[in-house]
Amino acid sequence: MGQSAGSSGTARYFAELLRTFRKSRGLTQAQLGELVHVSDSYVSAVETCERIPSPEFIAAADEALEAGGLLAIATEHLAHDRYPAFFKDFAKLEADALSVSSYSTHMLNGLLQTEAYAQAVIGSRFPPLEDEEVERLVEARLARQTLFFRKPVALFSFVIEESVLRRRFGTRDVMHELLDHILRCAALRNVVLQVASSDHGEHAGADGALTLVETPGHKHLAYLEAQERSLLISDPDEVARYSQRYAMIRTQALGIEESAALIKQLAGEL
Rank of each mutant, 00 (worst) to 15 (best):
A154L: 03
E258P: 11
D131L: 00
Q227V: 07
S41R: 10
I58M: 00
R166W: 08
D96W: 05
A240I: 01
D180Q: 14
Y83M: 12
K92P: 08
A85P: 01
E258G: 09
A140F: 08
D235V: 06
S54K: 04
T211D: 01
S7C: 09
A95C: 09
G201F: 00
D40W: 12
V213I: 14
L111F: 06
V36C: 08
H220W: 14
D237L: 04
I73A: 13
V164I: 11
L129S: 07
H37N: 07
L27E: 10
A59P: 07
A60D: 11
L221K: 15
A5T: 03
S44H: 07
A118G: 05
D207H: 11
M1A: 12
S157M: 05
Q252H: 08
Y83R: 09
T105I: 12
H77R: 07
L78I: 00
A118H: 08
S104K: 05
S99V: 02
F90N: 00
Q252S: 10
F156Y: 08
E162F: 05
S99W: 08
A59M: 13
D173E: 13
A61L: 08
V46W: 01
S124Y: 05
A91V: 11
E50C: 01
E56V: 10
V43N: 03
I122V: 15
H106Q: 15
E115R: 10
E162D: 10
A118K: 04
Y13I: 05
K23Q: 11
F126L: 13
D207R: 13
G68E: 12
G110V: 10
M175D: 06
S24P: 00
G170C: 14
P53V: 12
R144T: 05
A15Q: 04
R241N: 12
P55I: 03
K23F: 05
F148R: 04
E139W: 02
A91R: 13
T20M: 06
Q119A: 14
S8R: 12
I182Q: 06
A222P: 01
A74S: 11
S102M: 09
D207E: 15
R51L: 04
M107A: 12
L137T: 03
R141T: 03
A222V: 06
S157H: 15
V38D: 01
E258T: 06
G33M: 02
V38S: 03
T171E: 03
G201Q: 15
A74E: 01
G208W: 01
A97W: 02
L188M: 13
D173S: 14
E76H: 15
E257W: 07
G205R: 14
L188F: 00
S230F: 06
E115C: 02
S234T: 15
S234C: 11
S163R: 14
F14D: 02
E130Y: 01
A79S: 09
I249V: 11
L193R: 06
L183P: 01
D199K: 13
R136P: 00
P152T: 06
P236W: 09
H106T: 13
A79W: 06
A116P: 11
A154F: 03
A45F: 07
E66K: 14
S101W: 04
